[in-house]
Design a protein around this nucleic acid. Structure first.
Length: 359
DNA sequence: CACTCGTGGTC
DNA sequence: TGACCAAGAGT
């Protein structure tokens, strides 16, 4: 038996972290605002993806007040491309709540944090431990994976029993007084050593303490449920151009404040089954009472969302006449970049600016 | 609980 | 190349 085996698990993880922990922008200054923004950005999002967004965000919104006083379009523009846009809406909502109800001061205890929109069990514990050094275990996907292997928890990850086991282990192993660094240490460890596939057990400082490795089942843990099959949809979008002399404007629609790509702008579109072009024209003529002509296929884009796939065909139309209802807006081709969009529509917008002539 | 919610990387 | 996955939260 080596000396190492008598050193508590938490201490050994901390020792590994001191040598191998990553230098990340949000670890330099751990004020609650920066920790909050980083934790929300990191929800289901890779560190490498978040870094440039975090830097841009801090430059544009350096504190809660500046965020609370900005507009939804400003926030979504900085967020564009990060995905899960309800996070951006919730950040703005929360900033305004904190200014109005908390006198501009970030709430300090776990329960108040959990009540804020966009902060659940994980994020509120992460903020409490990292920004306020409270003894709270922040349990994320990394930590579930690490503990399920270290203690060989062979229970489906989506059961409440699994969750109870992990929480108890997390509470027992939490080094009091250093919870913030310890939570981050476990996440770095999960992201760098105890990987989801092909964990680097030969480099693992906890190899002798890992029940799963000892029993050769580290690649079978954690136990994940089977994924549900995702459907494929057909979609048709309308690029409706209005030419007035030298000026060309295009019709955009603001999406609903709830659901997919909430609050983002898009080229008006419909789900279709067959005969896309004609069906699109017919449905726009009747639904929006627009008179359109000269339709032609502009481009086709395939895209995968989390739980469904789409093939979207964009058709170009020339606007003639008709009433434009609310949520629609004529936009200068040169101003398209100011309207936050999802990936597919941004791609079409870029192509349109590059090649304004119909194809 | 099951489903919704984005995007980019990996194999 | 399609399936899986990533510092989850809301409904």
């Amino acid at each position: 038996m080596t000396m190492d085996s008598i050193i508590p698990l938490g201490l050994r993880i901390m020792q590994w972290y001191e040598r191998n922990g990553r230098n990340l922008p949000w670890r330099k200054d751990k004020n609650p605002y920066r920790v909050w923004i980083s934790e929300v950005m990191l929800q289901q999002t890779r560190v490498e993806t978040v870094i440039p967004y975090f830097k841009r965000w801090m430059k544009r919104f350096p504190n809660i007040k500046s965020l609370a006083e900005s507009t939804e379009n400003d926030v979504l523009s900085v967020w564009e491309g990060l995905g899960y846009y309800s996070r951006a809406h919730n950040l703005l909502k929360t900033a305004r709540i904190i200014m109005r109800e908390f006198g501009g001061k970030f709430p300090r205890n776990l329960e108040s944090l959990k009540d804020l929109p966009g902060l659940g069990a994980y994020s509120s514990a992460a903020i409490a431990s990292i920004a306020y050094n409270e003894n709270q275990p922040a349990i994320d996907g990394n930590i579930r994976r690490v503990y399920s292997r270290l203690f060989d928890i062979r229970i489906s990850m989506k059961t409440s029993l699994f969750e109870r086991r992990i929480r108890r282990i997390a509470e027992q192993n939490l080094p009091h007084g250093r919870a913030g660094d310890f939570n981050q240490a476990l996440m770095d460890f999960g992201a760098m050593i105890c990987l989801p596939k092909q964990p680097k057990c030969t480099e693992c400082p906890l190899e002798d303490r890992c029940l799963a490795f000892r029993r050769g089942v580290q690649n079978l843990l954690p136990m994940v449920g089977q994924a549900t099959p995702i459907p494929h949809e057909q979609q048709a979008a309308a690029i409706i151009i209005h030419k007035r002399g030298k000026l060309s404007k295009v019709l955009l629609r603001k999406r609903s404040s709830k659901g997919l790509l909430a609050g983002l702008w898009e080229f008006p579109s419909v789900y279709v089954n067959t005969n896309q072009g004609q069906e699109l024209a017919r449905r726009f003529l009747s639904t929006f009472k627009l008179k359109l002509r000269k339709k032609s296929l502009f481009t086709t884009v395939k895209h995968s969302y989390s739980h469904f796939r789409v093939t979207l065909s964009a058709y170009a139309f020339t606007y003639n006449s008709g009433k434009i209802t609310k949520d629609f807006k004529w936009v200068d081709l040169g101003d398209l970049s100011e309207y936050p969009m999802g990936k597919v529509n941004r791609l079409i917008a870029d192509q349109l600016v590059l090649n304004p002539n119909e194809r």
